[in-house]
């Protein structure tokens, strides 16, 4: 597995896309820091970008990489290697290379800006953490979809729908249910809805760290209380990890049974 991970990782690191992904984040972060001159505001703007783009890029790259490396996978399958090692290795190779581009792209401008000595360091780390979690989650989902669908068009379409659902439609349904059930106490419900969607969870986690949380008023106070307790923290972390572990395991299981 390590060998395959290494191979795909270095293969991807040499590719143009990693560089572009890195440059994108580096330029965006640097521009936002330079224009806003305020770390807190830059973090909010970057949050908007991260919670949309990390899942999108993760999904697209995941599906693309799987379909492109299909011949290589078939070659590997002919060797005496466990299927689990092949797919996990490729998954980790892609995720880690994306993560590296992301962290380096975000990190360099902020380090030059002096984030290490600033009180906003913890907020920045939360930003990196959520970006990382989202990348892991959505690459795993993309691999799962790609392994399941032999048809490339179908796979791509399905992956985009999943991203669209998580990033946009879910919130629409959320809002709609808040409207329909507005006569009922909705704190627990909105907590559950938030924790269940990794994108919403990331968004709330970052916002609660920042000054902007005061705008959330009563609901924000409920959320703050929940995430402040160790139980709430464990639950949200467990949910985030489940979103990584479940798709990964099912991807491996599907791949193991699959007739290539």
């Amino acid at each position: 597995m390590i060998k395959i991970f290494k191979y795909s990782f270095f293969d991807l690191m040499r590719s143009r896309w990693s560089l572009i992904y890195f440059l994108f984040f580096a330029i965006t972060a640097a521009a936002l820091l330079y224009l806003s001159n305020d770390v807190s505001r830059a973090i909010i703007s970057l949050m908007n970008i991260i919670i949309i783009l990390c899942p999108l890029i993760g999904t697209m790259f995941g599906v693309m990489y799987y379909y492109n490396s299909r011949e290589f996978v078939e070659l590997l399958l002919a060797q005496p290697i466990k299927r689990r090692s092949i797919f996990l290795g490729q998954y980790l190779g892609l995720t880690v290379s994306l993560l590296l581009s992301f962290v380096a792209g975000m990190g360099l401008p902020f380090i030059f800006y002096g984030i290490l000595a600033s009180p906003e360091l913890s907020n920045f780390l939360v930003l990196l953490l959520t970006g990382g979690l989202l990348t892991f989650t959505f690459v795993a989902l993309a691999f799962l979809i790609a392994v399941k669908n032999e048809n490339k068009i179908k796979g791509f379409g399905f992956a985009i729908v999943v991203w669209l659902f998580m990033a946009v439609l879910y919130d629409g349904l959320f809002l709609l249910s808040l409207f329909i059930f507005e006569d009922y106490p909705l704190d627990k419900f909105s907590l559950a809805m938030t924790v269940l969607n990794p994108i919403d969870l990331s968004r709330i986690l970052i916002m609660l760290q920042l000054d902007i949380s005061a705008l959330l008023g009563y609901t924000g106070a409920v959320f703050n209380k929940f995430f402040g307790t160790s139980l709430g923290f464990i639950i949200s972390l467990a949910c985030a990890l489940l979103w990584i572990v479940v798709p990964t395991i099912s991807m491996v299981r599907v791949a193991r049974r699959k007739d290539f």
Partner: peptide, 13 residues
């Protein structure tokens, strides 16, 4: 109208 919907602040939707 529905105060708890503030939780969707800064969502793409």
């Amino acid at each position: 109208r529905t105060e708890s919907s503030i939780i969707l602040l800064r969502s793409l939707f």
